[in-house]
């Protein structure tokens, strides 16, 4: 069922290349942070899929809520002079690497299981 994600990926990049949406520079940073958070959700969903615990609602709410929270908290932090965006980078950065490590293990055991056959 992974091919459906690939279709989404290709579609999104294609649309992004063709259509330009000017993002005000002030907000570009928050969009970047939202993308970071969403990327973590994507990897989390992939991992959940391998662990047979994928739940559509958990995935969707996590994706949008984390993205929005990362952007909004960073924005709020910048308003009050506290660099909350560092926390976003730290938390989601760490989680992304954790998820990647787990996914790598699944990929390895999948490859080993295949070579044994």
């Amino acid at each position: 069922m992974l091919w459906i994600s690939l279709i989404g990926l290709v579609l999104g990049i294609g649309l992004g290349v063709v259509y330009s949406v000017p993002i005000p520079l002030v907000y570009a940073k928050y969009l970047g942070l939202a993308i970071l958070a969403s990327f973590d959700s994507l990897l989390g969903g992939l991992r959940a899929g391998f662990e047979h615990s994928f739940d559509r609602n958990v995935f969707l709410t996590g994706f949008f809520f984390n993205g929005a929270a990362a952007a909004l908290l960073s924005y709020l932090g910048d308003r009050i002079g506290v660099e909350i965006y560092l926390a976003v980078i730290f938390v989601f950065g760490t989680r992304i690497f954790n998820n990647l490590a787990v996914l790598r293990r699944y990929a390895l055991s999948w490859l080993q299981a295949r070579s044994k056959k």
């Binding site: 579609l11 990049i13 299981a113």
Partner: peptide, 29 residues
């Protein structure tokens, strides 16, 4: 090691495709 979305509903797949499309669109932009 098998990948699974739990239930193979079409809605799940569409949601996932949509979400990935949205994220990659924003990233590309």
């Amino acid at each position: 090691v098998r990948f699974s979305f739990g239930s193979r509903e079409v809605a799940s797949m569409i949601a996932i495709a949509f979400v990935i499309a949205a994220a990659s669109f924003a990233g590309t932009v």
